[in-house]
Amino acid sequence: MNAPISDDLVFEARGLCKSYGDAAARVDALRNVDLSVGGGEFIVMLGPSGSGKSTLLNLLGGLDRPSAGMLRYRRTDLTQADEAALTLYRRHHVGFVFQFYNLISSLTALENVQLATDLVAAPLDAAAALGLVGLSDRRDHFPAQLSGGEQQRVAIARAIAKKPDCLLCDEPTGALDVQTGRQVLEALARVNQDLGTTTIVITHNASIAGMADRVIRLRDGHIDGIVANERKVSALELDW
């Protein structure tokens, strides 16, 4: 089921394949994936370890190139993009949030966000981005002075400060407790709602599925099913 919320597609994948290794020891991480993602969608990708969800996210984020098939970001063919083009793509259109936050330890919260705002022509104000994730009062703290949840929210602020078209989150709550995880998801939902940023969250935590517009399940490298939620629940209502 490919039902974009708006007409303009952010991502469109057809027959997408990704394999690793040579012929003798080939591992097919992704097999014939067809997918369309519309602007402003909040998508949760579920699947067990090795199902291919991270591989798909890496392809969508321009961190890797598909082995076969077609992948398009708006009108740009990512399949044909070279290294420099992918860098520019990540720079201007994609925001990443990782399981381990990946903050630069020698920079304060505000400076970590500025690192992203320095890259684009019309970013969000770095302080405003921190405000959006509720961390205005922690802006001058270094990562080592912040809790895990706070660090992850700085990472979200950094990802959204460039005003990217899409936000790609790889197990953003994987290293957090439930309470902190909820705060992080709440921040993601707010960004999706307020800024209209297309958001894709991959997780093995099925409880998160309730807050998505659509839930995509992966298994053995292909899409096992796509479900559109009739009613989205707020992050604060989630439990796991």
Partner: peptide, 8 residues
């Protein structure tokens, strides 16, 4: 991390 953020 910086490369992922889009630094060349």
């Amino acid at each position: 991390t910086l490369r992922v953020l889009g630094l060349t």
